[in-house]
Simulated scan of single mutants.
Amino acid sequence: MSLVKAGVVVLDCAEPEKLAVFYKELLEAEEAVVTANVVEIRAPGGTRLAFRRDANATPPSWPRPENALQVHLDFLVEDLDEAERRVVGLGGRPLETRGAPTVYEERGYADPAGHSFTLRLLPSTAPKRG
């Protein structure tokens, strides 16, 4: 029997309530824990994120090297264009992430507090033809 039952990624930010709304809408999640300094959400697929109040939090500068990456989230999607419209509509912004080639079709974004994340296209499950 596993001692650890679940993992939660925690993002530090100045306004956890506002950042939780962004991810709650993006992931179609529900609030699981709300305290004075932490808001945790759970998405239908099992993703758990928490947002912890830190008045001095500074977002990473990725992909620029001035500040460490700190944390990076990847979300798997079926339609990159549709997902991008949703991210931007919720207050996220695209990041210029050109660099090393990747085996994935993906796009980088920043949430309203500046944390970076990637939307990655789900690999096709259709059988290869030809």
Rank of each mutant, 00 (worst) to 15 (best):
23 Y>V: 01
115 H>K: 03
2 S>R: 15
95 L>H: 02
50 A>C: 06
46 G>Q: 11
101 P>W: 07
105 E>T: 14
99 G>H: 11
49 L>M: 05
18 K>P: 00
82 E>Q: 13
122 L>I: 00
39 V>S: 11
92 G>P: 03
19 L>N: 07
84 E>Y: 04
11 L>H: 09
51 F>P: 02
100 A>E: 14
89 G>K: 00
120 R>F: 02
102 T>Q: 14
75 F>E: 04
109 Y>P: 06
102 T>P: 06
81 D>P: 03
50 A>L: 03
101 P>D: 12
14 A>E: 12
60 P>M: 02
109 Y>K: 05
63 P>K: 12
22 F>S: 02
69 L>T: 13
91 G>N: 05
26 L>T: 01
37 N>F: 07
74 D>P: 09
24 K>T: 07
54 D>L: 10
86 R>G: 05
27 L>E: 01
127 P>K: 07
10 V>L: 13
28 E>L: 00
61 S>N: 11
33 V>E: 13
18 K>E: 14
44 P>Y: 07
71 V>Q: 14
52 R>K: 13
11 L>F: 15
25 E>T: 02
21 V>D: 08
18 K>Q: 14
80 L>W: 11
112 P>R: 01
31 E>G: 09
22 F>I: 02
34 V>T: 13
42 R>H: 12
121 L>D: 10
73 L>C: 12
70 Q>L: 05
18 K>R: 15
95 L>Y: 02
53 R>F: 11
80 L>Q: 10
33 V>C: 09
